[in-house]
Amino acid sequence: MAHAGTLEINNLSKQYQVKGEALPVLENISLSIKPGEFVSIVGSSGCGKSTLLRLVIGLEHDYKGEILLDGKKIVGTSLDRGIVFQEHRLFPWLTVEQNVGIGLLNAGLSTAQKNKSVQEHIELVGLKGFETAYPYQLSGGMSQRVAIARALVNRPEVLLLDEPFGALDALTRTHLQQELQRIWEAEGITAILVTHDVEEAVYLSDRVVVMQPRPGRIKRIVDVPLARPRDRGSFAFSQIKDDVLSEFSDTPRGDIALVQPQETLGANWQFAW
């Protein structure tokens, strides 16, 4: 089993320069994630949730504050952090097993160890028998399974998921959510899921972080103290889901303070990275 990492985000702020003007995308984010915890980040488009993930994986730089993995400041990308993007991003010129194997290129393993690890992870995501298929032969759901195997093959300490099921149909999505839960439990890994699907977040997570946009901030963190596997139809599940959803509605429930609408940026800015 992989070693699960502790992720500590302290006073993280990030801004982009747009036409010479500073545009804040994240402001003062602090979040502490325990080893083996599953945390979801939900928020509307433009709240900076994907940017937050890209900072943690190391694809974005120039931020203020700290991102610590097991107490060490993260620098650039590293094999101890794995990511699944919204698009599967498989290399079309490689087969399934080669696509999973590219993650191990710099892992310093022997060929035999690499093959074993690739095989194990293909089995983990339930794609045994498709090792030599090319991506054009796979469905969207299968491609995303390969992407999950590729992200896990290095046995990272943290698995980041950036709306991984956003482009899938509802049935496939529900099925892959169950699969992701099984994989997360099997690997005992720390996981951070960015999504705009509240039900998905409540179904999978120990905690749901609700973000609000312009600039991106944490609005509220909702605990999900339900035993797994969770029943989406249960009363307790619906209650937590409604609680999270109420953060997005215009007419908040009585027990939640009214949030002043933020000053909007004149132009139609839309950040989708």
Binding site: G58, L59, G76, L79, R81, L94, I102
Partner: peptide
């Protein structure tokens, strides 16, 4: 750019990026 990012996530060197991502993608 998405492919280049995958290569960065897996800590590819410049040579690895060129031979394993850029060349096959441009082929």
């Amino acid at each position: 750019r998405e492919y280049i990012e995958v290569a960065r996530v897996f800590a590819y060197s410049r040579t690895q990026l060129l031979t394993r991502v850029v060349l096959p993608a441009a082929l």
